[in-house]
Design a protein around this nucleic acid. Structure first.
Lengths: 194, 194
DNA sequence: CTCCTTGACGTACGGTGTGTATGTATAACC
DNA sequence: GGTTATACATACACACCGTACGTCAAGGAG
């Protein structure tokens, strides 16, 4: 008995996405069956396939949503970080770290996504969303072009690992300051000291 | 018709492990069925279950083997890196990077393993195999104890990402020197400059 | 040398989960 | 107001994991 208007359909898609985001964050990709998602969203698997095509398609939508949220927060903070490129680099990096440690985000984006989507697809998507800002900031700060890409990748890896490290230490109040302090050291290393 | 002596059994287990290592590296965990492994090793799935208990058990054995190889190479190089702790830190780090970029290693250890085994189990195993050496080296070099763990995690993340970054650039001869140069910058940042 | 226990598999089966084909009623456009 | 397309639900085929069970040789125990 499908009594779905266009608005109802959009609502259904949104509800499925929200439920899937929670479940993937909790149990990981392999740990959740599409029937779990469907039941929690009060539809059947047919609806899920209609809107997202496949389990991988659903996961991709989930990852996209989380990544967009992280990038939005990053850009917002960096934009009022002042004109000094070094300050912008720092502000943006710390903002990234804070955004990606939001409750279910790190696991989906940093652990599941590379395995599910493949590392190269994940890397491309990450680069498009937040990586560009890092690479750009490194350029603004005067990093040797020959090292820029390599350094960008390694700093990105450092921040991602910091996020996962933090996610396991939510009860230790000293962890977050320590992570930010360590990150500052690495960022200072990146900029050619004046 | 099982005519298996003890030596034959060990040979079977070894052959299955070798085949599984190749397949997991090529297609990832989800992309390989146990029947593929069994056929390639000229046995049935029964033999695989007998020796490794489960698909996850088989993957764990594969990951263990690769991680042991990486750690062995790391230790070997670091041990003749001389007595200077800073030189040992550098030598060990570069050795790690070289070892983990061996053909199928990075994907299994850095992309599949965290998702399959769970990040915490993977982290613990990685810390036991190579992480301890990094943390120890940082201590020897005089890193503030409050930052040591955070910095160790972030440097580890940087190296892992460098490895994956390199794995996608096997045809670019400038990539590896750039990765090592960028890594040196981060390592220099870690040691309190005298 | 014989018994018998155990290890090293092979075989058969059930359960779960993905994807696809098909049906259907309502919304949307003409 | 008839037609088409959309938004689902239902049913089915298929793949794959895990487990229960069977089997035959190896390796002592006597």
């Amino acid at each position: 008995m499908p009594r779905a208007s266009a608005a109802d359909a959009a609502e259904t898609a949104r509800r499925v996405l929200a439920v899937a985001t929670d479940l993937f964050a909790e149990r990981g990709y392999a740990g959740v069956a599409l029937d779990d998602v469907a039941r929690a969203a009060r539809v059947t698997r047919g609806a899920v396939y209609h809107h997202y095509g496949s389990k991988e398609g659903l996961f991709l939508a989930v990852a996209d949503g989380l990544q967009a949220a992280v990038a939005a927060h990053l850009v917002a903070v960096a934009d009022d970080g002042g004109p000094d490129p070094r300050a912008r680099l720092r502000a943006g990096s710390h903002a990234f770290l804070d955004a990606i440690t939001a409750p279910g985000t790190a696991r989906v984006l940093l652990v599941e996504a590379p395995a599910v989507l493949g590392w190269q697809r994940w890397r491309a998507q990450d680069a498009e969303a937040s990586g560009v800002h890092l690479t750009e900031a490194l350029a603004d700060v005067g990093v040797d072009p020959a090292l820029r890409d390599a350094l960008s990748a390694q700093l990105s890896g450092a921040m991602n690992e910091a996020a996962l490290w933090l996610a396991e230490r939510t009860d230790d109040p000293a962890a977050r300051p320590a992570a930010h302090a360590a990150l500052d050291r690495l960022l200072d290393a990146a900029v050619p000291t004046p």
